[in-house]
Amino acid sequence: MIRTTTLNRQNVSRGIADGTPITALTAMLLVVLILLAACAPHNHPTSPAPKPTTKFETVTFPADFVDPYMYSDDTHTPSQVARDLKSLGKQYCTDAYAKRDNSVILIVAQSQSRKIISNYSNNVKKWNGDFTKNSNEYHYKVNQDYTQLDAWVDNKLDLLGGTAITLLIPVSYGYLYYLEGGTGHWDMTINLYNCHDNQLKKTFTFRNQDSFTSTSELGD
């Protein structure tokens, strides 16, 4: 007759107490431990989140914008214009260089684009202060695409104010035109009105100011 041994609580307790090997119990425990280990969550090292890719924009100032009228041949070649832009600092641009066709390329990240646009907008405010300081009746407005400027002045317009309204303010808007996404040829029509009678006294373009020679043309 084959004797069958029943593995009950009493047998298990006795085996543990007297050090007797309990093969069946050991096997069962190993199986349970293996199953628990397989089901336990494993902590995997997490990879760092990828850094956002910096997006760059290319702004082209055409050769007919970077021309001898605005930048003299002796001191402001297209290469010098590019160096002037780079000299603004890394907070405003990543790179700037002149091409063989005399255009100037500006490379900016999105954050730099906002800052350099703000810089030229502040220039406009500064030159406007020079323009209006002689009279509280002096003022101007510019259309949406920066191609027309209407100014109200008189013959008391001084050299600094005249330079601001006919040169410095327009060229700043020219830069803004390209920085804000404009392409191709840019010019600005400048209309000068008498600030007392609202009569149009002089019309010329930013690129062709030879016809404007004296503030006496603007009326009292």
Rank of each mutant, 00 (worst) to 15 (best):
I2N: 02
R9H: 08
I16L: 13
G19S: 10
P21N: 05
A24D: 14
T26G: 05
L30R: 06
V32C: 03
I34H: 00
L35E: 09
L35V: 06
A37C: 05
A38M: 10
C39I: 10
P41K: 11
P41Q: 08
P41C: 08
P48M: 07
P48Q: 07
P48A: 09
P50E: 08
T53A: 12
T54L: 09
T54D: 05
T58R: 12
V59I: 13
T60G: 07
D67Y: 07
D67N: 15
M70R: 13
Y71A: 12
D73Y: 03
T75S: 07
T77K: 01
P78F: 08
S79E: 09
A82T: 06
R83F: 06
R83W: 05
L88K: 04
K90Q: 14
Q91C: 01
Q91R: 15
C93Y: 01
T94G: 02
T94S: 14
D95K: 03
Y97M: 09
K99F: 10
N102C: 10
V104A: 06
V104G: 03
I107A: 05
V108L: 13
S113H: 14
S118H: 06
K126E: 09
W127Y: 12
W127S: 01
T132C: 03
S135L: 05
S135G: 07
E137Q: 11
Y140D: 04
K141Y: 02
T147G: 07
Q148K: 15
A151H: 01
W152V: 02
D154Q: 04
N155R: 06
L157Y: 00
L157P: 00
D158H: 05
L159I: 13
L160I: 15
A164N: 00
I165E: 00
L167S: 12
L167F: 06
S172F: 00
L179G: 11
L179V: 09
G182N: 01
W186V: 04
D187N: 15
M188D: 01
T189S: 04
I190H: 01
N191K: 12
C195E: 15
H196N: 12
D197F: 05
N198S: 07
Q199M: 13
Q199N: 11
Q199G: 14
F204K: 12
F204R: 13
F206E: 15
N208P: 00
T215M: 11
S216M: 08
G219E: 02
